[in-house]
Design a protein around this nucleic acid. Structure first.
Lengths: 150, 150
DNA sequence: CCGAATGTCTCGACGACCGAGAGATTAGGG
DNA sequence: CCCTAATCTCTCGGTCGTCGAGACATTCGG
């Protein structure tokens, strides 16, 4: 079992290495756009919500990325000034501000992350369906452990 | 192939979800210790280097986490004030400052991340050697793609 | 119609980060 | 030896991201 445990620990290390590199990719996207770490997370959250058909409000964004309302205001100010989103008052509840990604920003994001995703998917060519199913189950299991760990 | 591409894209989403949760774990570790995001990355870098038998210097830490020298000074100030590391002038080259983790900090890190690692390894019980080998190859392949993406 | 709840924004303060440059130490060629 | 260039860390001043507290507008329930 000792040998097996070592192999498994290696997987944990590989995973950490991968997360570090993914983090670096995020920064390589953020820098040229004049965005910060948090801004990228926010953009991704807005895109995800929009794709789900439930556009984010300012407050929802704060909950999604873990920021205070003051920080959200500043964050949206930055994104709006940089032309990535615009504020739209919700017609039904005029206290709310819903966030819409601009066309240009959507295109930039799609070019960068879409490209990466295509490369990732292509790199999966060398794997059998059984392999990929094992990966899927593994990712799911690891996520459950991480979520439960507190 | 369309069906397969969808499945593969799902893996990318699962991976992103996992990285997000791992990030959250890092914050749950940092908060009670009075540490910030960068500080945790620094501690991990110092621990990794120490384990490799090549103790980090202040400058090396800056290179590892991507900070300017000014920021490194401030960072080490924080970590030292919080009792996580202490500065030791290198005897051979007295311009250098090598960073040593304190016993207490090592113990805290081991308790937290060691515990998580054990849980992760345990969760791999349900996987065959072939499964885990597929995971290992997949993680390696994904990391290569991410590193090459620039 | 009024008070409580909700959603966002403003203000003032703090901490993290960087660029430029100062101070200390080392390495190497006269 | 010594002088210069290179190296390593630290200090200083300024900018930006974040928060807590509270103001303002809007909605909801009695």
């Amino acid at each position: 079992m000792a040998r097996n445990d070592g192999d498994r620990a290696e997987l944990a290390l590989l995973l950490r290495r991968l997360t570090v590199e993914l983090d670096a990719v995020g920064e390589r996207f953020a820098k040229p756009q004049g965005l910060g770490r948090t801004d990228v997370r926010a953009v991704i959250a807005i895109l995800d919500a929009t794709r789900r058909g439930e556009p984010l409000t300012a407050g929802g964004l704060g909950a999604a990325v873990g920021l205070s309302s003051a920080s959200v205001t500043a964050l949206v100010d930055r994104l709006e000034r940089a032309g990535h989103v615009h504020r739209v008052r919700d017609a039904a509840d005029r206290r709310r501000v819903v966030l819409q990604m601009s066309e240009a920003s959507m295109a930039a994001g799609a070019a960068f992350f879409g490209g990466l995703q295509r490369e990732l998917v292509t790199a999966m060519d060398g794997f059998s369906d059984d392999d990929l199913d094992a990966v899927r189950r593994w990712l799911t299991a690891m996520t459950e452990v991480v979520v439960a760990h507190r």
